[in-house]
């Protein structure tokens, strides 16, 4: 492995970073069309689980709804607009509010009933165990 060390410069990591940065950049500048792609998701996987994470600051747990149907995960919710004080005047509002829904096709079949989710520091993490049938199995070769 040439690029196993995090400190080493990797052209692929660099490209991935650029791609993510472009996604994030455009999310804010196309008059809301990209709101259909809100929130941005990262999907991680190994032989056991699939993990989906999303940056969703300023939500309350009861305003978030997560569903899994087949291997589609959907996250929906609403971020309410709230003034920090009634008598305050507004100088700048950049933080978006309103309803959103995002559906993502998971890379593997998952056990729908065993999914867990946590919301911490404004980041949602959903852990979905892979379905037994979708886990990689090593096939042994018998010598004839």
């Amino acid at each position: 492995m040439y690029w196993s060390n995090d400190r080493t410069w990797s052209p692929f990591a660099e490209l991935r970073s650029l791609q993510r940065e472009m996604n994030r950049l455009f999310d804010g500048y196309d008059n809301g069309i990209a709101m259909t792609r809100f929130p941005a998701l990262n999907v991680w996987g190994n032989a056991e689980n699939v993990i989906v994470t999303a940056e969703l600051p300023g939500m309350e747990i009861d305003q978030l709804e997560i569903n899994v149907v087949n291997n589609q995960l959907s996250i929906q919710g609403e971020r309410k607009a709230e003034k920090p004080a009634d008598n305050a005047v507004c100088h700048r509002t950049e933080r978006g509010t309103g309803k959103f829904m995002r559906t993502v096709r998971l890379p593997y079949e998952v056990e729908n009933g065993k999914a867990t989710a946590k919301y911490e520091n404004g980041v949602l993490t959903v852990v979905l165990p892979r379905h037994e049938a979708s886990k990689p199995k090593r096939i042994k070769i018998k010598a004839s």
Partner: peptide, 11 residues
């Protein structure tokens, strides 16, 4: 730990 990034939309 031990996971591979499959879809990356934010960093």
């Amino acid at each position: 730990e031990g996971y591979e990034l499959l879809i990356g939309e934010y960093d």
